[in-house]
């Protein structure tokens, strides 16, 4: 019974890949996780799942990536997958203006269904198709700044910036988590002398024998 449960990582981050149909989400995923690209890949129905483990600042981070279907019909189904996601790669196609215009709708989608602290990277994919470009890099950059998103132009075909896009998202998430952990420690320290500090969440409702303090024991 070889248990294939692996705990060989420090952090597990869930990332969702979203954006209009045909912008290249699945190829970004396959490029990132398997270093593969296929010009005519099948359309994604529902959701597809892949993982990749990588190093972020000396920590081992396992990225759990959920590649979603782009078509409107699948949105209600796929939005269920946003739950627990700490990062999102929002992809558009630089050769199709419409897919860039729809970024706004995807953002709304994320704001409605995902955690409000989710880290979002906008990726203008197919940057290799320069002769067909319909969205300038500048427009992408400006929009991203306005919305407070990270931004990169990527090419899954040429393997350009794909790794970097994920790396950026994951690093940012890692920093946020770290900061939160620090803040929690800080808060724990400040509340040191009992009876004086502000009371934080003393979970003591139903369990009489409150002997189990599982996490954050410092």
């Amino acid at each position: 019974m070889a248990h294939r449960v692996d705990h060989e990582y420090d952090y597990l981050f869930k990332i969702v890949l979203i954006g209009d149909s045909g912008v290249g989400k699945s190829n970004i995923l396959s490029r990132f996780t398997r270093n593969e690209f296929s010009l005519d890949s099948k359309s994604t129905i529902g959701v597809e799942f892949a993982t990749k483990t990588l190093q972020i600042e000396a920590k081992t981070v396992k990225a759990q990536i959920w590649d979603t279907a782009g078509q409107e019909r699948y949105r209600a189904i796929t939005s269920a997958y946003y739950r627990g996601a700490v990062g999102a790669l929002l992809v558009y196609d630089i050769t199709k203006k419409q897919t860039f215009d729809n970024v706004q709708r995807w953002l709304r989608e994320l704001r409605d269904h995902a955690d409000s602290n989710i880290v979002i990277m906008m990726a203008g994919n197919k940057s290799d198709l320069t002769h067909l470009r319909a969205v300038s890099e500048n427009d992408g950059q400006e929009f991203a700044e306005k919305e407070g998103l990270s931004f990169l132009e990527t090419s899954a075909l040429e393997s350009h910036n794909v790794e970097k896009a994920f790396q950026t998202v994951l690093t940012e998430i890692y920093h946020i988590i770290n900061k939160k952990a620090l803040a929690a420690q800080e808060a724990a320290r400040n509340s040191g002398p009992p009876g004086q500090g502000t009371t934080i969440h003393v979970v003591d409702s139903s369990d009489a024998g409150s002997s189990k303090s599982s996490c954050c024991s410092s």
Partner: peptide
């Protein structure tokens, strides 16, 4: 039965 969430989902997908 021997797998966890990740390996099971990958197997079934």
């Amino acid at each position: 039965l021997a797998g966890d969430f990740t390996s099971n989902l990958k197997l079934l997908q």
